[in-house]
Amino acid sequence: MSETTFKIQRFNPEKDKETYFQEFKLEIPKGATLLDCLNLIKWTQDGTLTFRMSCRSAICGSCSVRANGHAVLACKTQASSVAQNDQVTIKPLGNMEIIKDLAVDLTEFWKKVEAIKPWLMPDEKKETQTTERTQSVEEFLKIDKASTCIMCSSCYSDCCSMAVDKSFLGPTALAKAQRFVEDSRDKETISRIKELSEDAGIWDCTHCGECSQRCPTEAKPLDRIVSLRTVALNSGVTNNYGARHAKAFVKSIKSSGILNENTIPVASMGFFNIPGLLSLIPVGIRMFLKGKNPPLIHHPMQELDDVKRIFKKFEEK
């Protein structure tokens, strides 16, 4: 069996000004996880190599690192599965500051979890502690997936929106929020969804899908964010740019079967958002001059009536 090169990013704040890569060679034992390999390197080659770990059974969420650019839970990942051409690059998680080697600062991560008020707010008046509250299997299933989150911060690390805006609440906190918004026992659904619809909340996700892809559990943050948006749209929490955009989009499809790109920007920005609308002018002119603007006369699809009928059918439900 051949050796694999582990190219690991190092940084010791007591010594180094910048991060650098160090290569370790290791024969990957059969069935070894990435965490097993990191430990073998630490225990037999370089005791200073620093990373977090605890349960090694994919439930505590300590050992997330980036392998070949993507966040993985080291204890859940077979080392052989990430070795490409006998090499694997290991870096600390993204979107967070490095403390030492592969250990990152989780302070902001936890602050964002805290910001969504991650605790049940039941109807205190109806509360009696003498019996359990019932919850149907269907109600349970709505929150079951989000509740599998292990707070490993893999999704947070690889979130593209977070990379350009550190104020974004991010996938972990939003997935956690869904667990309360859709908990049949919580009475603050509307106030929660209102807060979550504010700037840096549910509408700041580009649904790129990285979070769900990197999630090692069933929590799949993007699906939870979509659920939150559904709650917002269906409970009338729509006085914000994101919901306006979604509403305008759906309205456009409903009226002509296909998207009218001329009306969407105006509707999303809000009809009275003068600075926002003005900001569209340069790009509008640029596109117009090249003939890249949408046709000024929007042609609806053929057989629009059948599509309208389907819309109506769902609205009746």
Binding site: R52, S54, C55, S57, I59, C60, G61, S62, L106, M151
Partner: peptide, 10 residues
Amino acid sequence: VYPSRSHSGA
């Protein structure tokens, strides 16, 4: 560790 990393969770 961190609270959510405690071994009760396993």
